[in-house]
Structure formats: structure tokens, C-alpha cells
């Protein structure tokens, strides 16, 4: 376990302190790669109206873009998964296992195939365009569906829904039904009962689901490569580009590690903001 997890990570850390010199690796330890990421310049690069005063603005810009895209995907996933999990926990009484299996069936195929499926759905001659054309709503195919950040967010949201349904379902399933009865008996309406009992008690599962989706999607690289086009690139694509095309593995390692640290900080802030400790204390 240690060998499988810690060694590659340690190798990445060590690599990030070296530098690439043409085809050779310069093994003198230096902070140059990290310095390159934060070095400032007088002339800002304008991106979406925001001036970036970095000499090498690409990692910072892509990091922000990836976090925003990933957050949108996470919100979409929770919005989709919560009602499904709720239905499963409260409305389905027979054959629960079968329902769970049915929900996960689309996820038995390869991730790559699901991404390609979205390419077909959103494509120029794809399902949406030909459908709308058939109905006479449009006469020219919509070309803003594919190859942009929106397509990446949709694909990511669909791909990760199953991973969110299960933790939310488990936390909903564990809610003591007598609490709900008590709330109704004491005069809470359906909405109030949901907000005061169900939602808080299912929060740990929902938080877990959000993290489960957010953390891996920030660094995703396959989805933007296939459906993102140049406008949909994320930070994972930069790491790949640095390792392969630009043959600068040390800088790629530095970007990857910085990305990990930033995600860790975001997650920590998130957990602190929703008062994770309070939730845990209440459950205990």
C-alpha cells in the first residue's frame, strides 16, 4: 500500500525540485519551478476581464477555470443525485437492491464510452441537433453544444452521478423514521420537516458525495480532451502537456503538486464553512 501510494507521490515531489534542461534533467534541488508559477510581471494577461499579473499566467488561469468548472459539475451532480437517492430511500419499498443495480447499470460501461456517447448526443449531427431539426425548431444545427466548457461540465456531471447517489442514499436510509413521525406529530409541514430533519441528517452523506465528485474532477483530463475543444481545457491537460509535449516533467510535477495543495485548502475551507465538526458531534 505504501509502495503504491507514497512512492509515486514522493517521486513527484522530488521531481518538482529538479529542472529540465533540454533533454537532460538537472538534479540540483531548486525552487525554480514553484517560483515560475508565482513570478509577477508588470504587464497583465487579461482573461475574462480579470488581469493576471503573473509572468506565466497559464497555470493560475487554468486552475481557477478548473475549480469553477468542477464546482458547477459538483452542484449539478448533487442536484441530480439527491432527488434520486431520496426516492430510493423513502419511496421504494420493494426490491431495493434491484433499483440500486438498475441505477448503476449505465456505469458498467467504460468511462471513455460514456464520454464518447456525450460527443454523439451533443455533436453537430448528434441526437439533440437532429431531434430539434426533425421537430422544425431549428433549421441549422446548433454548434455551441460541443467543444466548450459547458459540454465538459455536462459530461462530468453525468459521469459522476452514480458515485453521489450511493453515499446520499445511505445517509437518508439511516435516518430514524420515528424522528420524521415526531416532527409531523408536532405540527411540521412537509417542507419544514424536510428542512429540519431530513436535510441536516443527510448532510454527512451529501458532503461526502460532493467531495467525492469535486476532488477527482478538478484534475480530470480525459473529458476535456474529448469534448472540451481548446476552450474547455483544464489544469489536468496542462500537466499532461507539460509532461509530454513540452517535455518539462519537473514543471509539470510542480503544477500537479500545487494543484493538490490548492484542492486540499479548498476542501478544508469547505468543511470548515459548513461546520463539519458540528455535524459530526451531533451524530455521535
Amino acid at each position: 500500500m505504501i509502495a503504491m501510494l507514497a512512492l509515486p507521490l514522493a517521486a513527484l515531489v522530488v521531481l518538482s525540485f529538479w529542472t529540465q534542461n533540454g533533454f537532460e534533467l538537472d538534479r540540483t534541488p531548486t525552487l525554480e519551478n514553484y517560483a515560475q508559477l508565482v513570478r509577477l510581471t508588470e504587464e497583465p494577461t487579461i482573461w475574462f476581464g480579470i488581469p493576471f499579473y503573473f509572468a506565466y499566467p497559464v497555470p493560475a488561469i487554468l486552475m481557477i477555470k478548473s475549480v469553477v468548472m468542477s464546482l458547477s459539475a459538483t452542484v449539478a451532480v448533487i442536484a441530480l443525485a439527491y432527488p434520486m437517492a431520496y426516492f430510493l430511500a423513502f419511496r421504494v419499498h420493494k426490491h431495493k437492491a434491484l433499483w440500486i443495480i438498475l441505477i448503476t447499470i449505465p456505469f458498467w460501461t467504460s468511462y471513455l464510452l460514456r464520454v464518447f456517447a456525450w460527443k454523439i448526443v451533443l455533436g453537430f449531427n448528434g441526437a439533440i441537433n437532429s431531434g430539434l431539426k426533425e421537430l422544425g425548431i431549428i433549421d441549422k444545427p446548433l454548434d455551441f453544444l460541443l467543444y466548450n466548457p459547458g459540454a465538459v461540465v455536462i459530461t462530468l456531471a453525468h459521469s459522476w452521478v452514480a458515485f453521489a447517489i450511493l453515499p446520499i442514499y445511505v445517509s437518508l436510509e439511516k435516518i430514524d423514521r420515528s424522528l420524521l413521525e415526531a416532527a409531523s406529530d408536532l405540527g411540521d409541514g412537509k417542507v419544514k420537516r424536510f428542512l429540519r430533519i431530513t436535510l441536516p441528517l443527510s448532510a454527512p452523506g451529501t458532503v461526502a458525495a460532493a467531495l467525492l465528485v469535486f476532488i477527482p474532477t478538478v484534475g480530470d483530463y480525459v473529458t476535456p480532451t474529448l469534448v472540451g475543444g481548446p476552450g474547455g481545457t483544464m489544469i489536468g491537460n496542462l500537466v499532461q502537456e507539460l509532461f509530454l509535449r513540452q517535455n518539462n516533467a519537473p514543471l509539470g510535477a510542480a503544477v500537479a503538486i500545487t494543484m493538490m495543495l490548492i484542492i486540499a485548502v479548498i476542501v478544508a475551507i469547505f468543511l470548515w464553512a459548513i461546520g463539519y465538526r458540528r455535524i459530526r458531534a451531533r451524530r455521535a
Partner: peptide, 20 residues
């Protein structure tokens, strides 16, 4: 030359990444 090729690799990578 190698230096030119590496310069192109970097500049092209950055150009693509800045598209939005």
C-alpha cells in the same frame, strides 16, 4: 533547432490554454 522546437512547443501550449 532543438531550442526553436522547444520554444514552439511551449508557446503553442500556452496559446491553447488561454482560449476561452
Amino acid at each position: 533547432t532543438d531550442a526553436v522546437q522547444e520554444g514552439f512547443n511551449k508557446v503553442w501550449g500556452d496559446t491553447k490554454a488561454l482560449k476561452y
